[in-house]
Design a protein around this nucleic acid. Structure first.
Length: 421
DNA sequence: TCTGGGGTCCTAGGACCC
DNA sequence: TCTGGGGTCCTAGGACCC
């Protein structure tokens, strides 16, 4: 059996933990630059605020209904996530942290010793009591079915006490007939559309399709999903492994038209990528740079281009990565467009120290101690204290975060004070 | 009229997730 | 005026090899 544990409205719930006065009040959390809605409390969902809604379009509704708006506070969410995960880790030796607010547990053989319904409810009570975060628990013979069970627990918190177990063929079929196809894990917009055309409207209908059709139109991923939903365990816990790609991308506050402006940004993105890469203890062998105009302005000429550079050697030096990224940028930059977004994505990782030396070009080994020193200084004295000259030295880039809550759990100055009467 | 067969590697793009 | 960011996996097709 597998359990899927999911925090309810995670970011909104984190904001509420330290603001009990916001219980029952609609809350939304915004993306970087305060751009889109990325989390909503139940009250906000009821108001009809959609996921991904551009904030500026809903200002009026926020005002009218007293919606509490927060800028994303990832230091807080990351720390709260860590707390939740460490509690969940006590419930099974095998855990896969699937995202910041979700985890799978393997409960193989647990049904012989535990009542799984009570086991799931127990997790919910402990996590709520110890962290203040409400969760939902779904338990079933496969991962995809655990996702389905979780959905039921979340949809019917009173009847299920926040935990639902699918442990019989009868319950499996009932659950699948209840679940709309577009709500199935792994079925996105495009697949849903194609499936509607096949008269598939529930998860159950999907499991009745012939394997060949699924394979042909949804690749082996779709086929695995189908089998998992049929109760045949196909997806197993994934090993925690290091990342296969690392990205730093941003939407700009204003449009850029000049190569110099983009060069500064790309250099910074490459440098940030290199910092993440060193943290993971890897070097990369290739790097992608992309630029694009504003896709929301269809009256302007559109341009979107990316280029992959194979580096002659593996490196994690911010200087070298920045240089290669700028080389790449010069190849795809065209005058006459208004650029709104750009990014650097690095890939093809090898463990640090195991890089294959090449015949002629090799990385500058002096960068290794240099980067170590840079990382140390930036860690000790604050981000971006040491930068490349190709980055903007006058300005520290900051995104729009007008409604940021305190870092209650990760910054000493922000710890709450309690007043005794 | 008619043009082999079996591979690998790389890239772009699509689809999905949170 | 204003519209996020960071990931994973798969497939098709082109270029190339013998």
């Amino acid at each position: 059996m597998f359990a899927l544990i999911d925090c309810n409205n995670f970011y909104a719930s984190c904001e509420r933990v330290f603001r009990p006065d916001l219980n029952g009040v609609p809350i939304v959390v915004l993306s970087n630059n305060d751009g889109c809605v990325i989390a909503r409390s139940n009250e906000a969902k009821t108001l009809g605020i959609p996921m991904g809604a551009p904030a500026f379009q809903f200002e009026k509704l926020f005002m009218e209904h007293g919606v509490q708006v927060f800028s994303a506070n990832f230091s807080l969410y990351g720390d709260m996530s860590h707390r939740v995960m460490s509690i969940l880790g006590e419930y099974s030796p095998e855990i896969e942290i699937y995202s910041i607010d979700e985890a799978f547990l393997k409960l193989e053989g647990f049904d012989r010793y535990f009542n799984l319904q009570e086991y799931g409810e127990g997790m919910g009570k402990k996590v709520k009591k110890w962290t203040g975060i409400p969760i939902s628990v779904g338990i079933a013979p496969t991962k995809a079915l655990a996702k389905v069970a979780n959905r039921i627990a979340k949809k019917f918190p009173k009847q299920t006490q926040g935990a639902y177990v699918i442990d019989s063929e009868e319950k499996r079929i009932k659950a699948l007939k209840w679940l709309k196809i577009e709500d199935v894990w792994g079925i996105g917009r495009q697949h849903a559309k194609r499936l509607f055309a096949q008269k598939v409207s529930t998860a159950y209908d999907f499991t009745m399709l012939p394997d060949e059709w699924v394979k042909k139109h949804m690749s082996v991923i779709g086929l695995r999903l189908k089998h998992d939903l049929q109760g045949i365990p196909t997806l197993d816990l994934e090993e925690v492994q290091s990342k296969k790609s690392i990205a730093t991308t941003r939407t700009f506050e204003e449009d850029y038209t000049e190569l110099e402006q983009l060069s500064e940004r790309i250099s910074t993105f490459a440098f940030t990528c290199s910092e993440k890469l060193r943290k993971q203890g890897s070097c990369c062998k290739s790097l992608m740079v992309f630029v694009r105009s504003n896709i929301h302005k269809d009256n302007l000429p559109q341009y979107h281009r990316s280029i992959v550079i194979q580096m002659p050697f593996a490196s994690n030096s911010g200087i070298e990565l920045s240089n290669f990224a700028l080389l790449a940028l010069r190849q795809i930059f065209r005058h006459g467009y208004r650029y709104k977004k750009a990014g650097v994505i690095i890939q093809d990782f090898v463990p640090e120290g195991e890089e294959q030396l090449s015949l002629f070009d090799n990385r500058d080994l002096r960068h290794i101690p240099l980067m170590k020193a840079v990382d140390f200084i930036n860690k000790t004295y604050g981000q971006q204290k040491v930068r490349l000259a190709s980055q903007d030295l006058k300005r520290v880039w900051k995104m729009k975060q007008e409604r940021l809550s305190p870092r209650y759990t990760t910054k000493l100055d922000d710890i709450i004070t309690i007043q005794l009467h």
